[in-house]
Amino acid sequence: MLPPGSGTGQFSQFSKKAIRFVRKGCTNRPFFHIVVAEQRKEQFMPVIEQVGSYDPIPNEYNEKLVSLNFERIRHWIGNGASISQPVQELLGLSGFLPIHPRSYMTAWRNRRAEKLNDSVETKEKAENVDSQTSK
């Protein structure tokens, strides 16, 4: 049976909390729960509360599905919980937080890589054409 979304983890009032991923799913099929847990606890220990889920594999409509319980996330942020960087990126993309600088960096690097790739391909094509005409 699945543990309840309200969580089963024991926690002390003043410990540091974090909103972060827990990897569910199985081999070669990642799926993440977004949970609130004590920062010092390990990933697969019982959590305080589940506040969302993230499916990183696109579905048939080419969508990655994210669900977020914004009410509880607000509550835990207000209680001083820290947010892990991947979750911060997701919250940024959702429009809840400002967009994380890492998202901009990744986007920029991807664009640069694509550009390089394109220029290399066009060069190769041009060389191929040259060699064919010289023969």
Binding site: G52, P58, N62, E63, K64, L65, V66, S67, L68, N69, F70, L90, L93, S94, G95
Partner: peptide, 8 residues
């Protein structure tokens, strides 16, 4: 791919 965010 697109992201779809749902408030639950």
């Amino acid at each position: 791919s697109k992201f779809v965010f749902t408030d639950i």
